[in-house]
Amino acid sequence: SAVVMEEGSPGEVPVLVEPPGLEDVEAALGMDRRTDAYSRSSSVSSQEEKSLHAEELVGRGIPIERVVSSEGGRPSVDLSFQPSQPLSKSSSSPELQTLQDILGDPGDKADVGRLSPEVKARSQSGTLDGESAAWSASGEDSRGQPEGPLPSSSPRSPSGLRPRGYTISDSAPSRRGKRVERDALKSRATASNAEKVPGINPSFVFLQLYHSPFFGDESNKPILLPNESQSFERSVQLLDQIPSYDTHKIAVLYVGEGQSNSELAILSNEHGSYRYTEFLTGLGRLIELKDCQPDKVYLGGLDVCGEDGQFTYCWHDDIMQAVFHIATLMPTKDVDKHRCDKKRHLGNDFVSIVYNDSGEDFKLGTIKGQFNFVHVIVTPLDYECNLVSLQCRKDMEGLVDTSVAKIVSDRNLPFVARQMALHANMASQVHHSRSNPTDIYPSKWIARLRHIKRLRQRICEEAAYSNPSLPLVHPPSHSKAPAQTPAEPTPGYEVGQRKRLISSVEDFTEFV
Rank of each mutant, 00 (worst) to 15 (best):
His338Ala: 14
Leu238Gln: 15
Glu288Tyr: 10
Gln370Lys: 15
Tyr465Val: 13
Asn261His: 07
Pro414Phe: 00
Leu455His: 09
Glu494Met: 08
Asp317Ser: 03
Met420Pro: 00
Asp336Met: 06
Val252Cys: 02
Leu225Tyr: 10
Val255Asn: 01
Lys337Val: 14
Asn269Tyr: 01
His431Phe: 12
Cys385Leu: 04
Leu422Glu: 02
Arg411Met: 07
Gln370Leu: 14
Arg498Phe: 10
Thr379Arg: 05
Asp246Arg: 05
Leu238Ala: 15
Leu501His: 12
Pro471His: 07
Pro489Asp: 14
Ser409Val: 02
Pro482Ala: 08
Leu501Ile: 09
Ala447His: 12
Ala464Met: 12
Leu238Tyr: 11
Gly309Val: 12
Asn227Pro: 10
Arg344Val: 09
Arg454Phe: 11
Ser389Ile: 04
His248Val: 15
Asn425His: 07
His432Gly: 05
Ser244Phe: 12
Gly347Ser: 15
Lys290Val: 11
Ser229Asn: 12
Cys460Pro: 13
Gln370Ile: 13
Ile319Asn: 14
Phe350Glu: 02
Asp303Cys: 05
Glu257Tyr: 13
Gln230Pro: 11
Pro414Cys: 03
Ala424Phe: 03
Asp217Ser: 12
Ile440Val: 12
Met330His: 07
Lys296Phe: 05
Pro491Ala: 14
Ser469Asp: 15
Ser403Arg: 09
Val473Ile: 07
Lys333Pro: 12
Tyr355Cys: 00
Ile266Gln: 03
Lys444Arg: 08
Pro380His: 00
Met330Asn: 07
Asn372His: 08
Phe324Gly: 02
Gln370Cys: 15
Tyr274Val: 07
Ser504Arg: 12
Ser244Ile: 13
Val335Leu: 08
Pro437Phe: 05
Ser358His: 01
Leu302Ile: 12
Gln293Asn: 15
Glu263Arg: 01
Ala327Leu: 04
Tyr465Trp: 11
Pro226Lys: 09
Val354Arg: 00
Leu238Val: 06
Phe324Leu: 02
Pro482His: 10
Tyr383Ala: 05
Leu470Trp: 14
Glu307Asp: 10
Ser229Gly: 11
Ser409Met: 03
Ser435Glu: 14
Ala481Glu: 13
Leu399Tyr: 15
Leu501Val: 14
Glu263Ser: 03
Phe311Trp: 08
Glu307Ala: 13
Lys499Pro: 12
Met426Gly: 01
Tyr383Ile: 03
His271Gly: 15
Gln237Tyr: 10
Ile367Asp: 04
Gly369Val: 03
Thr438Val: 08
Leu253Thr: 02
Met320Phe: 13
Asn467Pro: 07
Glu288Cys: 12
Pro243Lys: 06
Met426Gln: 03
Arg448Cys: 07
Phe508Asp: 15
Ser352Ile: 06
Glu257His: 07
Glu384Asn: 09
Ala427Met: 11
Leu470Thr: 15
Glu397His: 13
Gln259Asp: 03
Glu360Gln: 10
Val376Gln: 00
His316Tyr: 11
Val354Gly: 01
Asn348His: 15
Gly300Asp: 15
Gly398Ile: 09
Tyr313Leu: 11
Pro226Cys: 15
Phe311Pro: 08
Ser229Cys: 10
Asn436Val: 10
Lys394Gly: 10
Asn467Ile: 14
Lys406His: 07
Tyr274His: 07
Lys333His: 13
Ala424Gln: 02
Glu233Asn: 12
Lys394Trp: 12
Phe371Trp: 12
Ile287Met: 11
Val378Met: 02
His451Lys: 07
Phe508Tyr: 13
Val473Gly: 15
Arg344Pro: 06
Asp382Cys: 04
Pro489Val: 13
Cys392Leu: 04
Asn425Gly: 14
Phe371Asp: 09
Ser352His: 07
Lys290Pro: 10
Leu387Gly: 02
Asn220Tyr: 12
Arg418Asp: 00
Tyr493Cys: 12
Tyr493Gly: 15
Asp336Thr: 11
Glu488Ala: 13
Ser260Asn: 09
His316Ser: 15
Ile250Val: 04
Val408Lys: 00
Val255Leu: 03
Asn220Arg: 14
Tyr493Gln: 15
Val374Asp: 01
Arg456Thr: 14
Thr332Gln: 08
His478Pro: 15
Leu289Ile: 14
Arg448Met: 09
Asn356Asp: 02
Glu218Cys: 10
Arg418Met: 05
Val400Phe: 09
Thr402Gln: 09
His338Ser: 15
Cys340Ala: 15
Ser235Thr: 14
Leu299Phe: 08
Glu384Gly: 10
Asp295Leu: 05
Asp240Thr: 04
Ile459Asn: 08
Ser428Cys: 15
Gln237Gly: 08
Val404Ser: 13
Glu307Lys: 15
Ser219Cys: 12
Leu224Asp: 14
Arg434Pro: 05
Leu390His: 02
Cys305His: 09
Gln391Lys: 09
Gly309His: 13
Gln497Trp: 08
Leu238Asn: 09
Leu329Asn: 05
Val404Cys: 13
Ala464Gly: 08
Ser433Asn: 07
Ser235Glu: 15
Ala487His: 12
Ser358Asn: 01
Thr379Glu: 11
Met396Thr: 03
Lys249Gln: 14
Val404Gly: 14
Cys460Val: 09
Cys314Arg: 09
Asn386Ala: 08
Leu381Val: 03
Gln310Trp: 09
Gly272Val: 03
Ser235Val: 13
Val255Arg: 00
Pro468Gln: 11
Ile326Gln: 04
Pro486Ala: 12
Val376Arg: 01
Ala251Ser: 07
Pro380Val: 01
Ser235Phe: 14
Arg344Thr: 10
Gly492Ile: 12
Pro482Lys: 08
Pro489Asn: 11
Lys363Asn: 13
Gln293Gly: 13
